[in-house]
Simulated assay, not measured.
Amino acid sequence: MTHLARVIRLDESDLNVFEHAAEPGEWVISGAFAYSNWTEADLTGKRRQAFAHGWLGLETFGRASVVAVAPITEREWQACAEALADHFVAHYGAPSRQAAMPVALEELGYARDLCNDYEPNTLILVERTLEPVGVRERFRPIAPTAAPLESFAVHGS
């Protein structure tokens, strides 16, 4: 079974620390590509927080600080790929969905490979730093506890 991560909102902090917060239940990817041309001068305020700790939601294209691994259906996967390809057209100058689709699938594949290393309901945090050679990402998994995650957080239906 294929896994991806979904937004978990354990509290309201994402609404305060990000310019645009992703919604609970949204599928996410790392979204580090958004920072490929950034310098230290770009890392201020809420933009710094999004860079340092934000996952990219695939519906609202907002950011989230905590995500949980969950199984994804083929239909959901395809919808994520289409949404991301359309985002590349609208915001990054890709000429068409068809042209953007290989890059969208590569980004989703990276997220899938990360998530497939963990069992469902594992929480994952991201930490990014700007290095001389680009953006460096580190992921910190938090294993699920005995209590089901659904008992205290909403992460989609």
Rank of each mutant, 00 (worst) to 15 (best):
C115L: 10
E131Y: 07
W38D: 02
E137H: 10
E23D: 13
A70I: 00
L56Y: 08
P24Y: 00
P132C: 10
L105Q: 15
R47C: 04
S36N: 06
P120C: 09
T129R: 01
T60E: 03
S96H: 09
C115V: 04
L43K: 04
A83L: 05
A94E: 04
F33S: 00
L4M: 13
L149H: 07
T60L: 11
R112H: 14
E82P: 00
I8Q: 06
F18W: 13
F139A: 08
A64F: 04
Y92F: 14
Y35Q: 00
E19T: 11
E26K: 01
A21K: 02
A68F: 10
G156I: 06
T60C: 09
A41M: 03
A21R: 02
L58Y: 07
T129G: 06
V69I: 11
R6F: 12
M101L: 14
F61Q: 09
L4N: 08
E74A: 07
A85I: 00
P95S: 13
H155V: 04
Q98L: 09
G45V: 06
G45Y: 15
V17F: 13
G109C: 05
E150T: 11
P102I: 04
A104I: 04
W77S: 08
H20I: 14
G109E: 01
P148F: 12
T44L: 03
L4H: 07
A81L: 05
L4Y: 05
P120V: 09
C115T: 01
E40F: 00
V17C: 10
C80G: 07
E107V: 08
V135C: 06
E74M: 02
V67G: 05
R47E: 03
T39P: 11
G62V: 06
T2V: 12
E131F: 10
L15A: 11
